[in-house]
Design a binder for these strands. Structure first.
Lengths: 202, 202
DNA sequence: TTACGGATATGACAAATGTCACCTTAAATT
DNA sequence: AATTTAAGGTGACATTTGTCATATCCGTAA
């Protein structure tokens, strides 16, 4: 049986190196490389043969979900496993839609990982049970515009600057915000951004 | 030479288990236990002999800085190493004041950890170089009231509710916010909360 | 005692925010 | 061709937010 060639994408160096070392002990695993964001991961994928990518979600430059999308497009044979802290339904849905083969929480022992990697390499889809349950209850009610604006709200941009940034009138931006606030049942724009973020919709 | 008895406090199970395994390979380290927050860490400290605690900062129940304070008080001989993602000067300062013997970023390879643990066990104080540099330049300009209010702003509370919550008049709350915004050179309350959070002042 | 500084409050004003009803334009649907 | 729908815009209005000058109360230093 041939070895499984694995690429680890994780911006927290300590975890990345620990995973590389520990998974490297498995006889049939070969850690090809570790990358600290999606962009460098894609560079490696273009050059090296990789069977399976283990990736975090929240990373600088390019996040794990966009990476998964790119992999589905450019390297359809490569399996992708999302490994994240966040049990957010929004993330899970987007990850699966992007073509992920597994979605695991960092809330598991490393030991469990090796087995799961084998399962997924064999063609199964694995989702952390914590998520499988609370899965299809609430889905993202926001439009792309609303999400876009909330992302700017989060970093403290006032209406006027948001309007300029995305080429809309101030009034329209306020209309979208008003909609978002009402959809999310929030107290104000800050609350709306917070709620959306917590659900994994941003 | 006797072994160094280590307690790992980290809420991200995957990293905790990985560290436990990897550090456990060192001949003179003995991983006594892993805890997932400060409270259970203190319980273990009360029962087991521990020489050194390796702790995260952001955890549920009791954070790593409060834990460090408690350890300094109740177990003054135990060394404490903070291990965190955040290169925030505010965290560093508070950690050192709480009596930490080391402050490391999760941005290092695991290999480096073993050496540093030896150094710290030998009595040295170790701070990640990334932090040592940009250290004493900016210190928290906020008053306790301002911090308190910014923490409520973060979760989307409007002025009126904040005023009720902390027994001040609406006007006073707005005055404190105005002060905070100006001190932090922020665009508005959201921006102020964001900046303060990023610096580790909340 | 008096003076000073800190914490809190008030009022006034401008600017930003939240809500709503209604308008325009350009697809997409029938 | 007529109609619906989606995306964006406008104007009006009430509320909230941000700024500032000024005031009160209290404890402490001179």
């Amino acid at each position: 049986m041939s070895e499984i060639r694995i690429l680890i994408v994780e911006d927290q160096t300590m975890l990345a190196s620990a995973l590389a070392t520990l998974l490297g002990y498995e006889k049939d695993f070969r850690i090809v490389a570790t990358a600290e964001n999606g962009v460098s991961a894609l560079e490696i994928l273009a050059e090296e043969k990789v069977d399976l990518v283990l990736t975090d979600i929240e990373m600088p430059e390019m996040d794990g979900i966009s990476l998964t999308q790119e992999i589905s497009k450019k390297h359809p044979l490569v399996r992708t496993i999302i490994l994240t802290t966040f049990a957010r339904t929004g993330y899970l849905q987007r990850a699966m839609q992007a073509g992920a083969n597994g979605y695991l929480l960092k809330d598991n022992k490393v030991d469990a990982l090796a087995n799961i990697i084998h399962q997924i390499y064999a063609g199964e889809t694995v989702v952390s049970p914590e998520l499988a349950i609370s899965n299809w209850n609430a889905k993202d009610p926001l439009t792309e515009r609303e999400r876009q604006i909330l992302r700017l709200i989060e970093i403290g941009e006032p209406t006027a600057r948001i309007a300029t940034a995305i080429n809309l009138s101030k009034g329209t931006v306020r209309n979208y915000l008003s909609e978002a606030i009402s959809k999310l049942d929030a107290k104000n724009r800050i609350d709306a951004a917070r709620i959306a973020r917590k659900k994994g919709w941003l």
